[in-house]
């Protein structure tokens, strides 16, 4: 067993809306060890992005965190911390890479400035040292001509290069936890693999822990140690990646596998292959939230919400799991 970096227990996050309370994250628990990568997979609206912001404690004012939610980073309970204390953790201990590199960088500040300010602010580095370190970081993330790029503005870079810059910003203070929130969704297919490889390399080289959030089962395949599948704000299946691929238990997970785009597909094929839409999170239906869209759903599925069950390594929230004898 490695050193535990992150421990999330029963995280519940809701938003006050005009219609009522929207339960975006509904009782999520997991732990993450140093050097490991956890993939969090789900459709848009499944609560995975809210989960990432809940961990960073970067929620808007309308958000309400449920009682009993606990996020422990390096043994520190983030729920008990003041905003000022949290601020000191963001950067040096936890960092995030956002989905869209086109909008995640400040258009009026140079790239070098956006990297070095983290260093001067948190590590109290001098301006000159911070700049040197920024160039070094840009080189580390594979940006060509780092000493020229450092003085350029985001609009002068391509999307892939900007995402490299965003990664450089995230790793600048050597955080223990890196959250990558759909880091490749907004990028060209050709660049996606490069960015994912880079993230994976950074985690291994710097011995961090990473939560990799994506809607694409194909992304987690070769890169994650463990995968958590999210649906309607809950984790519905969790297992080491090979186990998950080999012994899929949840019909939803199976549907996600079926929706992985293949090279053999005709271009512009509609990727959203799962019939129906995610449930209304303000007035959720009774029973299993996936039941209305599930081919295998029975009467019992619509009555009670299934709890996570299974073995120590592989859990699922389904009363009729696939590929296995129904436990008595």
């Amino acid at each position: 067993m490695g050193e535990t970096i992150l421990e999330v227990t029963n995280q519940r996050t809701a938003f006050a809306t005009g219609r009522g309370l929207l339960q975006a994250v509904d009782g999520v628990s997991f732990t993450l060890e140093r050097g490991k990568i956890l993939g969090v997979v789900g459709e848009s609206g499944s609560g995975k992005s809210v989960l990432s912001r809940s961990i960073m404690r970067l929620l808007p004012g309308t958000a309400v965190t449920g009682p009993g939610s606990r996020v422990v980073l390096n043994g520190q309970d983030l729920m008990q911390m003041s905003e000022g204390e949290l601020r000191r953790l963001r950067g040096p201990q936890m960092a995030i890479v956002f989905q869209d590199p086109m909008t995640a960088l400040n258009p009026v500040l140079t790239i070098g400035k956006q990297i070095s300010e983290v260093l001067t602010f948190h590590l109290k580095m001098g301006k000159r040292d911070a700049r040197r370190k920024a160039v070094e970081l840009l080189r580390a993330v594979g940006l060509p001509q780092p000493d020229v790029r450092v003085d350029q503005y985001p609009h002068q870079l391509s999307g892939g290069m900007r995402q490299r810059v965003a990664i450089a910003i995230a790793i600048a203070c050597e955080p223990d936890l890196l959250i990558a929130d759909e880091p490749t969704t907004a990028l060209d297919v050709t660049v996606q693999a490069e960015i994912l490889d880079l993230l994976q390399r950074m985690v291994r080289e710097r011995n961090m822990a990473m939560v990799l959030i994506t809607h694409d089962m194909g992304v987690v395949a070769g890169r994650c140690d463990e995968v958590a599948v999210m649906y309607a704000g809950r984790i519905v299946e969790k297992a080491p990646v090979t186990e998950l691929f080999r012994n899929t238990a949840m019909p939803y997970t199976a549907a996600l596998f079926a929706s992985i785009p293949r090279v053999t597909d005709p271009p512009h094929r509609k990727l959203d292959a799962i019939e129906g839409r995610p449930p209304d999170l303000i007035n959720p239906p009774p029973g299993c939230p996936f039941a209305p869209r599930c081919r295998f759903a029975e009467e019992a599925c619509r009555r009670t919400v299934p709890e996570l069950e299974g073995t120590a390594t592989h859990q699922w929230a389904c009363i009729k799991p696939l590929n296995r004898e129904v436990a008595a």
């Binding site: 970067l58 950067g91 869209d100 400040n106 300010e117 948190h122």
Partner: peptide, 22 residues
């Protein structure tokens, strides 16, 4: 509301710095 402000917050920048610089 912009993403780059969210990123500045994620970088642990102070509110004063976010408002005046970012």
């Amino acid at each position: 509301q912009e993403n780059y402000i969210a990123l500045a917050r994620a970088k642990g920048m102070s509110n004063r710095r976010i408002l005046w610089v970012h």
